[in-house]
């Protein structure tokens, strides 16, 4: 159990680095004397750091949830149609009720994300049970189909630019004070999931086991669906979808610590925050003074990690 302290240290180090790296000079020891640095810190650096950490943590937890819901390790909220569903909802309300308040937009985005994820669950329920690898393939294709609807509609209404920020690779440069706070809702949804961790762990064992233990499968499914959709919708609206976080982090943690979710969910959240913070830092440094979207780094790193997970020898036999 030395994973937790190691991750915590890494998190603190990355957070400090995230606060100090950037175009304006910010020296954390000299803040008192430097009002400009203080302003940069409070208005830009701190929000960004929090946005990155919250996104990573919440998406990773959402990944655990969706994997428990479909009982398959190779899916994530970015490959279940969830993000595309949220984008479709946002698109719909932007077109039909452009003046609607923010909370309504969030509700619509979450509902649409939920509908798309439910569609995914319905599709995979009809797949042959033993074909484990078909589930992620179906998810990726479904995401593509919903995504092409989004593209089509956006094209007709000249809204492609929005779609680019929602579904294009996630980017944190816009996360400043006043523009990132929705992510706290995503964080809240993740905490909610942690409170119900045992239920999701049991759900992962299969319907019959869950029913046998007296768990209402449908109720837990609905809760999971809600949490995944809310997290994804918030991430899509504020920073844009990040690939592979929800897919890779739960796998890596499960490999090291197993699937006792009450114990592992905090680690998953921590690891997700660490991974995304690291990617965001790389994205800010590699072509400084310009930035890359963090999602691009994650696309490369995450795909590599995923291929490794897919092809590593099984731990036993």
């Amino acid at each position: 159990m030395r994973i937790l302290p190691a991750l915590s240290l890494a998190l603190i180090a990355l957070m400090l680095a995230s606060l100090t790296i950037g175009a304006a000079q910010v020296d954390l020891r000299m803040l008192r004397q430097d009002p400009l640095a203080m302003l940069v810190l409070v208005e830009s650096r701190l929000p960004r750091m929090l946005a990155v950490a919250l996104t990573g943590a919440a998406l990773s937890v959402a990944g655990v949830l969706i994997q428990a819901l479909v009982r398959n390790r190779f899916v994530g909220p970015d490959t279940s149609g969830t993000a595309e569903g949220a984008a479709l909802g946002l698109l719909a309300i932007t077109i039909w009720a452009p003046a609607s308040p923010l909370w309504l937009r969030m509700v619509v985005a979450s509902l649409a994300a939920m509908a798309a994820t439910a569609l995914f669950l319905a599709v995979i329920r009809r797949l042959p049970a033993r074909e484990v690898m078909l589930v992620p393939i179906a998810g990726i294709i479904l995401s593509g189909v919903v995504g092409s609807v989004v593209t089509f509609v956006a094209w007709q209404h000249d809204l492609m630019q929005f779609v680019g920020t929602w579904l294009g690779s996630g980017e944190f440069s816009g996360a400043i004070a006043g523009r990132y706070e929705l992510l706290w809702i995503a964080g809240g949804a993740a905490v909610l999931a942690w409170l119900a961790a045992d239920r999701f762990a049991i759900l992962g064992l299969g319907d019959s086991v869950a029913t046998g233990l007296g768990l209402s499968v449908d109720a837990v499914m609905r809760l999971g669906l809600l949490a995944v959709s809310v997290v994804t919708a918030m991430v899509v609206t504020t920073v844009g979808m990040l690939p592979f976080v929800g897919l890779v982090v739960p796998n890596l943690v499960a490999r090291l610590m197993g699937d006792n979710l009450r114990q592992t969910l905090p680690v998953v959240a921590l690891a997700g925050a660490v991974l995304v913070l690291a990617c965001d830092l790389v994205a800010r440094v590699v072509v400084a003074p310009y930035e890359l979207p963090a999602g691009l780094i994650l696309g490369v790193l995450g795909a590599g990690l995923f291929l490794w997970l897919l092809h590593r020898r099984p731990a036993h036999g």
């Binding site: 484990v132 690939p243 696309g299």
Partner: peptide
């Protein structure tokens, strides 16, 4: 075979990300 397909799909994502990068 399904694992091979998934590998191909993810390789595609990897190539696209690398090209974008």
């Amino acid at each position: 075979i399904p694992r091979m397909i998934l590998t191909g799909v993810i390789l595609g994502v990897l190539f696209r990300s690398l090209a974008g990068f």
